[in-house]
Design a binder for these strands. Structure first.
Length: 258
DNA sequence: ATGGCTGAGCTACTCAGA
């Protein structure tokens, strides 16, 4: 089963790119972030024609997440955490893989910049609540897949120039420690698990030729609970969509589980 | 290298992104 995570930076601006991608890679499930639209304006039909059902937790202009799937996804939930600012940042659902029931948790973590503002506090509080709820979730189901735009640079290797980001909301030690705390609950960062020394990115700024210079960072992740490690077939950062016309600033990360 | 580029909402310009 192919599952992909992609921050599309507006689903409506990206319909052509997403359809081209689907044609090429034919994922079973797409976990999308930053769809930037309300549910009623989501392009359901475009994806339905290609065989995907869309489960949408939208928001006007900002944020928004969705699960597009060719396979059955049960128990869709949009209330994983109580978000004080009512931002649409998490959608979850359940799939079956052989005899295992796996909960998919699709997240768009707040950016948190600038650091000396309420935005940073909001990010910290959000992550704190998230980790706490994951702990609770693990009591009922130990087969969890957390995917999405974490807005966290896990380690120095995960950005083109760490010094520029060590005091940034994406790279601050305090934030990176929360990522480690999550891993310590019993998860693997699947990309890093499979690629111990490789330096690849999932995001490149639109400006200043960041893409051409490969000034990127790895902030989109798949976390899989330890007991699902045996189910991993492959993990791949697909850079091709970032090279296309009118791209998202993020590129898809692709997980295949068996 | 705190700039510059893109999208939404709206139709001039701000906000947000990372």
């Amino acid at each position: 089963m192919k599952i992909i995570s992609w921050n599309v930076n507006s689903v409506r601006a990206r319909v052509t790119n997403i359809l081209d991608y689907i044609k090429e890679f034919s994922p079973d499930i797409l976990l999308l972030q930053e769809i930037k639209t309300q549910d009623e304006n989501f392009p359901y039909e475009e994806f339905k024609k290609r065989g995907y059902d869309s489960h949408v937790y939208g928001q006007k202009s900002y944020n928004g997440v969705a699960i597009l799937s060719k396979v059955e996804v049960k128990n869709i939930n949009k209330d994983f955490i109580i978000d004080d600012l009512k931002q649409s940042r998490i959608i979850t659902g359940e799939i079956k893989l052989k005899k295992k029931k796996i909960e998919l948790i699709n997240i768009y973590v707040p950016n948190g910049n600038p650091v000396e503002t309420e935005k940073y506090n909001y990010k910290k509080d959000w992550i704190k609540k998230f980790v706490s709820n994951i702990k609770k979730k693990l009591f009922n189901n130990s087969n969890l897949l957390i995917a999405g735009d974490f807005n966290i640079i896990p380690e120095e290797i995960d950005v083109y120039d760490f010094k520029r980001y060590e005091n940034d909301a994406l790279g601050k030690l305090e934030i990176r420690k929360k990522f480690r705390e999550l891993l310590n609950l019993g998860f693997n960062d699947v990309y890093r698990f499979k690629n111990k020394k490789k330096q690849e990115y999932t995001f490149w700024d639109y400006f200043a030729g960041s893409w051409q210079k490969n000034y990127g960072m790895r902030i989109d992740h798949f976390l899989l609970s330890n007991n699902l490690i045996e189910n991993i077939k492959s993990i791949h950062i697909n850079k091709i969509p970032r090279s296309k016309v009118k791209p998202s600033d993020h590129t898809p990360i692709e997980l295949e589980i068996i």
